[in-house]
Design a protein around this nucleic acid. Structure first.
Lengths: 120, 120
DNA sequence: CTGACATATTCCTATATCGGTATATAGCTT
DNA sequence: AAGCTATATACCGATATAGGAATATGTCAG
């Protein structure tokens, strides 16, 4: 068995840096393919191919406008990644330090050690 | 050129679902390889191989304990993913609805249209 | 209708992957 | 030392990839 298809899910689609760059470029609105080609400095066929992958996982939507196709981001598709990674946020974020302290205290109280300040 | 190595960065390493499962299993503390094998229902060599990839991108650390190796998660490695995806959160989260409304109002005021309710 | 423009698709090739199986390495235990 | 346990590594095969180049499809202008 080989590696999962890039179109298997958003995690795989977004593992490719240039596809992330495309999503970044689409962050503030619709853009045509040529627009993206210019913005990213990639060859047109590669951009089209990357867009196809992003389309297949639902990370972008297309709209036709004459001979151009305007791509727009579909944030919903990134939610699974967000939800997964946010679960680990406490492992590095200082925002949780206070919470950790509180939980420590609760734990000690639960053990009847109301005075606290015991060492591990 | 082929797809980027799974060890190229955390995005690639974590694109594989079983590697995410390993990280999930390590979320609440150190575990030995066999422990992970039992928890995930995978063959031991595959677990070792997945752990190697996670080690190479810095997503886990190892500690030797007799003949066992205890793996622990290193959350820092997930931060780039977190930081990237959080930038898109406003695309789906209701938490930003209120902010959007405020920004709309500000925009209208800036344009001198204090009465608001103009159509595009 | 012909040509220019915008985008998608096809073909090619090198490469890294993943699972499976077998085996190597290393640390206990008796 | 022998044997068992825990983990890592090597080998194999099938597969999907990504860039490059060429080409196909579709649309607008004159």
């Amino acid at each position: 068995m080989a590696r999962a298809a890039t179109t298997a899910d958003t995690f795989n689609a977004v593992a490719e840096p240039r596809r992330r760059a495309i999503l970044d470029a689409l962050a503030d609105g619709e853009r045509s393919v040529n627009d993206l080609v210019a913005a990213l400095g990639l060859a047109q066929p590669q951009v089209s191919k990357h867009l196809k992958v992003l389309r297949e996982v639902g990370a972008v939507d297309v709209r036709e406008d004459g001979r151009r196709r305007l791509y727009r981001i579909n944030g919903e598709a990134l939610k699974p990644i967000h939800d997964w990674v946010v679960g680990f946020e406490q492992l590095w974020s200082e925002r949780f330090d206070r919470l950790d302290a509180v939980l420590e205290d609760l734990k000690r109280e639960e053990q009847g050690d109301v005075a606290g300040d015991e060492q591990q």
